[in-house]
Design a protein around this nucleic acid. Structure first.
Lengths: 104, 104
DNA sequence: TTGACATGCAACCAAATGGTTGCATATTAG
DNA sequence: CTAATATGCAACCATTTGGTTGCATGTCAA
């Protein structure tokens, strides 16, 4: 889970996920075309996304295809974000009470 | 939005959010007691959480109270994670089709 | 077979990050 | 008032991060 959060922290990597979201199965060179950096830099970002299991790859001959795996994002949504979401309404009412107590 | 993702990337900061989730309005010293680092380090983390608008503060005398703000997390869930969530089922079926095509 | 193409690996570098220590300031309690 | 308490500010440091360049390897096409 930590790897997923860290992977999502970088805008370049989120852009790569977006690109794969638009069209999954893209090759490394295809992904590089939208990016303003060297192929090697993109490779490093993809490695981090793979490490976090957000991207899976498949070698086809001399090309490497990249597929988006949305499962870790979904897990974060359910196990982590959901907790704060469930807390949201009560937090708002607590805030209201606090403000009323603070400024009489 | 980038600030939120970057703020969530660090496990210490997520722990601070957890702590505030359990009990919002904690003072700086109270938050420090659960952490295994100096007060100044915690202050820096809290500043990043404030920057991302995940934590709001209120000065009460010589103390500073920290309140959890779940709104940015909710926005990420809705605007960003939701996109991939909506894509999940179709992605799975695409994967299935691909595997069937790959391994005849 | 050979050259072009797609990717991999490694060394290197600047900047950001996460932490520390030391001291300053402000508020409250006695 | 004064001392203890709560926080703020700044300099400094090691490590990580995000990027580069250079070269190596593997695969396809002519």
């Amino acid at each position: 889970m930590d790897a997923v959060f860290r992977a999502l922290a970088d805008p370049t990597r989120r852009q790569l996920l977006d690109s794969l979201h638009a069209r999954t199965g893209q090759t490394l060179n295809a992904l590089c075309e939208h990016m303003d950096m060297t192929r090697q830099a993109v490779t490093k970002h993809l490695a981090i996304l793979e490490e976090a299991n957000l991207v899976t790859t498949m070698r086809r001959g001399r090309e490497k295809e990249h597929y988006l795996n949305p499962v870790p994002i979904n897990e974060i949504a359910e196990r982590w974000i959901g907790k704060f979401e469930r807390h949201r309404l009560s937090a708002l009412s607590n805030l209201k009470q606090r403000l009323e107590r603070e400024e009489p």
